[in-house]
Amino acid sequence: MSALKLMIIVMLSGIFSVFNFASADQDFGNGADMAHLSAISEILTSPNDFMSSPVTVEGTIVKVCKKRGCWMELASDKKFQTLRIKVRDGEMVFPMTAMGKVAYATGKLTAIPLNLMQTKNYLAHIAQEQQESFDANKVTKAITVYQLSPTGVTIED
């Protein structure tokens, strides 16, 4: 086989992989394990009960990191409550156009206790990322951030 023919085959396989991408579903990592669903409200009521083993949550995507798509927030089944799904930059990239869609995420729940200064900095950073206004004086209590580090995410269309 000539070098030219070989290169044409390689090129076609590249084109094929792009077409494959065009029809790819919205699975990230291993995709979510739908068999073990837990309600976000239940998790956030007693987070310590869910720290030891992987959990799967379901919720409407209400926020996505505008810069790198490295986190998204899922709406809880309870009003005013969300759970952040956070990955290391580049590990998974959540599309901004997924807002309003339902996502399932499987992973490990982690707790990050913050002091008051860290809380203000954290919330300021989030607001800056989301291009939202933020008043540090309104933050008077330290928070513990609970987030899910997913091994698999599935976004339903």
Partner: peptide, 9 residues
């Protein structure tokens, strides 16, 4: 971001 065959390509 798509992994799969693109990784090898």
């Amino acid at each position: 971001e798509i992994k799969s065959a693109w990784t090898y390509f």
